[in-house]
Amino acid sequence: MTTMLVTGATGTLGRQVAERLGAEGADVRGLSRRSPSYAVDLRDGKGLDAAVEGADVIVHCATTPRGDDRAAGFLIDAAERAGTPHLLYISIVGVDRLPLGYYTVKRRVERMIEDSGLGSTILRTTQFHDLVLRILSGAAKLPVLPVPSGVRVQPVDSGEVADRLAALALPGPSGRVPDLGGPEVRGLTELAGTFLRATGRRRRVVPVRLAGKAYAGYRRGDHLAPGHATGTVTFEEFLDHRHRHPA
């Protein structure tokens, strides 16, 4: 039986990846700070060797706004000591183009994995529907709903990303694989209207022009993958499913 270690196993993506791998008959170890069996904080790496020992594949879904490279360093070192043959990493479209701190760190982690000598697979995806919903939900707490003007997004369903990761985990290392993007590239202003209708809220959507290189990159579409629109679940379908199956 193949043993799979999934980091971030209680998160939006990691939980789904663990479920899919388990359904395929793998022995799945779910690693997170709150895991009942493999409680590890990747920020200090304590207990990581025991979790990694004997794992055939590590699917690295854990992420944090700060310290992703430090956490990845601990994980790579543990994988090297254990002789793990395959490390699968989820990254983001545009990490090599957008001058954004979080993206810069994600790109650094990609390089760390590529340079480690471990067998690896790296998948980049566009933003999740969940992220777009979180942004719009937060903005809707104001009397008006502000959105960055001229910014388009290509949100993808996290379940489809989980399907792809589970499929990539089963064979051997594949290197950098084709990006996975959502089915549609749409303006944030348009999606804000979709969100308001779906949630029955009434707000005026106000496009706001921002400053900075990162904003300019978003306006250029450096975070998009229109040539890899292989996802199928639209934002409307995602919202409808959320309404019918609230978390």
Rank of each mutant, 00 (worst) to 15 (best):
P207I: 00
V206Y: 05
Q127M: 14
T121F: 07
P178T: 02
F195G: 01
L170T: 11
G119I: 15
R134Y: 12
V151M: 02
L142H: 03
E237H: 03
T230A: 13
R209F: 14
A139E: 00
P178A: 02
L131E: 03
G175R: 12
M112D: 02
L188C: 12
R164C: 13
L145S: 00
P146L: 00
V205E: 00
P146V: 00
G193W: 06
A166M: 09
E110R: 15
H223S: 12
A211I: 09
L188S: 05
Y215A: 05
V205Q: 00
G193M: 08
A225W: 06
Q127N: 02
L191Y: 07
R201M: 11
G187I: 01
S174P: 11
A211V: 04
L191C: 15
V156G: 08
K106Y: 08
K106P: 11
A169F: 14
G159C: 10
K141N: 09
G212P: 06
E184A: 14
L168A: 09
R197W: 13
R124V: 01
R209G: 09
T234E: 07
T232M: 01
V153F: 07
E184F: 15
P178V: 02
L165F: 06
G193S: 11
L123V: 14
M112R: 04
D179E: 12
S137D: 06
V233S: 02
L168Q: 03
T234P: 12
T234S: 13
